[in-house]
């Protein structure tokens, strides 16, 4: 009969319409409360409205989610490499980057002119970045990672440090990376053979020291006092060692200070 097809179709629309209300009753008024209901709503069994109420509830991103890259830096109180970059400025990310949006200035020792395994400057032009994740995938030191922070809208892009992310803005502590991608971080740590930077692991293995079986921030959280003492001792030892070496003590302190400032700036910017 003519018109039956349309009615059939409208039936589907009607079903969808009522489904939403039936669904709401099923949740018993707790549709937007609690993570469990959220998971049901966003899962395959979802019926009815499944809207993510964005500013109030935010979808947590899966671990592999890729947005703009960031650089991993060690925790500011890490016993081995406090506040040190993981990046060794080997330049593989800049070479593999498809739109060539990564710019790295390699550090040089002011005296010997030999390259120092730490970038002097690191820039990512996020107006060119295509979020492909190659830099993170091919980095041999696990030092550059893809961020989950997508809330980056700006009123201006050409200002200093806005859409060309510089090193202070790119740097985020390892605990942040562990936060957003625990499984991947664990896989990578297994690949490296420990939770420290590959260089530290190599050194420790050479000297027979034990490597960390957990990331530093977790060890610290488990036993804050002892760890703090250990960190202080390690830092003091490092300071005295470098003090005997001459003017280098200033550099290390300076670097730690700069890192602190950068992190503070980053936090301030986030708010």
């Amino acid at each position: 009969m003519n018109g039956m097809g349309i009615l059939k179709g409208l039936g589907v629309t009607l079903k969808h319409f009522f489904q939403t209300y039936v669904d709401d009753i099923k949740y018993g008024g707790r549709k937007y409360i609690g993570n469990e209901n959220f998971e049901t709503r966003q899962g395959l069994k979802a019926q009815g409205a499944y809207t993510v109420q964005y500013p109030e509830e935010k979808l947590a991103m899966p671990e592999r989610f890729r947005f703009v890259p960031f650089l991993v830096v060690e925790e500011p109180d890490h016993p081995d490499r406090a506040g040190h970059d993981w990046c060794t400025s080997c330049g593989i990310c800049a070479k593999v980057c498809p739109p060539q949006c990564i710019w790295i200035v390699r550090s040089e020792d002011p005296v010997t002119k030999r390259p120092v395994p730490e970038p002097e400057a690191f820039f990512i032009d996020i107006d060119i970045c295509m979020n492909c994740g190659y830099c993170a995938e091919f980095c041999p030191f696990d030092a550059i990672k893809m961020d989950h922070d997508y809330e980056m809208a700006d009123y201006d892009r050409t200002g200093v440090g806005l859409h060309i992310h510089d090193k202070p803005r790119l740097s985020k502590p390892f605990s942040y990376y562990y936060d957003i991608a625990p499984t991947t971080a664990a896989e990578e740590a297994a690949g490296r053979g420990g939770w420290e930077h590959p260089d530290v692991i190599k050194e420790k293995k050479k000297s027979g020291q034990p490597v960390m079986d957990k990331p530093w921030h977790m060890l610290r959280a488990e036993d804050p006092e002892a760890r703090a003492a250990a960190a202080a001792a390690a830092q003091a030892a490092a300071a005295s060692a470098s003090a005997s070496a001459g003017p280098k003590v200033d550099m290390a302190a300076e670097r730690a200070k700069r890192r602190q400032e950068a992190l503070a700036r980053h936090r301030a910017w986030k708010q």
């Binding site: 993570n35 966003q42 991103m61 671990e63 592999r64 936060d179 499984t183």
Partner: peptide, 16 residues
């Protein structure tokens, strides 16, 4: 991946 898991952090709170 073994699990399709959203990771909660300060930014995003709703986990699947």
């Amino acid at each position: 991946p073994e699990r399709m898991r959203g990771t909660s952090n300060t930014l995003n709170d709703k986990i699947r």
